[in-house]
C-alpha cells in the first residue's frame, strides 16, 4: 500500500465517521423534537399557540402554570401518581425479590419455567383481567382508591422483578451465603444480609422499570380510580384542549406527568438501560 492511498483510506474513514455522527445527531433531534415542542407550549401565551399560520418564535410566559394550578388540584394528582408508582414498586419488590432468590437457588428442574411464566403475565391483554378485577375491588370496597391500581399493577411488576432477580442471583455464586450460615446466620439472614446487598444494582434497575410502568399507566387508573384519586396520566387527557383549556395547560401539566421519569432515566441511565434490556429477555 502506498502512502498516498493509505492517507486516502484514513480520510475516507474520517469522512465515514463524520457522516455517522451527523446521522446520530439527526436521529437524536428527530426523536426529541416532538417532546421539546410539547414542553415549549407551556411557555407560550395562548394566542400565540393558536396563531395562524403557526409560528415557532414566541414571547415566554409562566401564565400557563398559573392557570394549571387554578384548574387542577396538582398536589392531589402528584401524590396519586407517586402513591401508585411507589406502592406498586414496594409490593412488587417485597414479594418479587425473595421469589427470584428462591427460584435462582432452587435445584427444581422447572424453576426457570416458573420464572418465565411469571414474566409472561405481561402478555395477557389487560381488558381480560380488568373486568373481574373491577368487580373484585368493588366487593372489597377498594374501587376508586389508588390501592386498586397498586394491587393489579403489582402483579405485572412482581413478575418482572422475579425474572430480573432470578437472573441476577443466578449469576451470584452461593458460597458467600453458605459461609455466612457457617458463621451462625440463619438461611433467611444469609439471604437478606449477604445476598441482597450484592444485587442492589439489579434491585435499582427493576425498581426503576416498575416505577416507569406504573407512572405511565393510563388504562388501569382511568378505569379503577375516582375523581380524588386519579393520577397525572389521567388528568393529562382532560388537559387536551377545547379552546379555553389550551395546549399551554397541557404542556405545563406534561412537565409534571412526564419530566420526572425522563429525568430519572437520564440520571440513572445505566440502571435504566439494564432494566430495559434484561427485562425484555
Amino acid at each position: 500500500m502506498t502512502e498516498v492511498s493509505a492517507s486516502a483510506a484514513r480520510r475516507g474513514l474520517r469522512l465515514r465517521g463524520l457522516a455517522e455522527n451527523a446521522a446520530l445527531v439527526a436521529a437524536v433531534i428527530a426523536f426529541l423534537a416532538p417532546l421539546v415542542w410539547l414542553y415549549s407550549t407551556a411557555y407560550k401565551p395562548a394566542r400565540e399557540i393558536f396563531q395562524i399560520p403557526p409560528a415557532l418564535a414566541f414571547t415566554p410566559t409562566l401564565e400557563n402554570f398559573r392557570v394549571l394550578l387554578e384548574l387542577y388540584d396538582l398536589p392531589s394528582l402528584v401524590s396519586s401518581s407517586l402513591g401508585i408508582s411507589l406502592g406498586t414498586t414496594a409490593v412488587a419488590l417485597l414479594v418479587g425479590v425473595p421469589g427470584g432468590y428462591a427460584l435462582a437457588r432452587s435445584r427444581w428442574k422447572h424453576a426457570t419455567t416458573l420464572a418465565y411464566a411469571l414474566l409472561a403475565i405481561r402478555m395477557m391483554p389487560r381488558v381480560v383481567t380488568l373486568m373481574p378485577f373491577y368487580l373484585m375491588m368493588r366487593d372489597v370496597g377498594l374501587l376508586g382508591t389508588i390501592w386498586a391500581v397498586v394491587l393489579t399493577n403489582a402483579t405485572l411488576s412482581a413478575g418482572f422483578v422475579v425474572w430480573m432477580m432470578f437472573s441476577y442471583f443466578r449469576a451470584l455464586p452461593p458460597e458467600a451465603e453458605y459461609a455466612a450460615q457457617i458463621d451462625g446466620r440463619t438461611a433467611f439472614g444469609a439471604f437478606l444480609f449477604v445476598a441482597v446487598p450484592l444485587v442492589v444494582p439489579g434491585i435499582v434497575a427493576s425498581a426503576l422499570f416498575s416505577i416507569m410502568l406504573s407512572w405511565n399507566d393510563f388504562l388501569t387508573p382511568v378505569f379503577l380510580t375516582g375523581v380524588d384519586s386519579k393520577p397525572l396520566s389521567v388528568a393529562l387527557l382532560s388537559a387536551y384542549g377545547t379552546k379555553d383549556v389550551s395546549w399551554g395547560t397541557m404542556g405545563a401539566l406534561a412537565h409534571f406527568a412526564t419530566l420526572p421519569i425522563v429525568l430519572i432515566a437520564l440520571v440513572l441511565n445505566r440502571y435504566f438501560i439494564q432494566g430495559l434490556t434484561r427485562g425484555m429477555h
Binding site: 437524536v28 426523536f31 416532538p34 405511565n216 399507566d217 387536551y240 425522563v262 437520564l266 435504566f272
Partner: peptide, 30 residues
Amino acid sequence: CLALLLVPVTVTPLATGLIFRALLTADYGP
C-alpha cells in the same frame, strides 16, 4: 446519544398521542 434517544420510551404513550394530535391538527397544528 443512546441516553437521549431513549427519552421517548420513558414518556407515557398517552402524551405521545396528545403531542401528535396537537402537532397534526389540521386547523392550527404546526
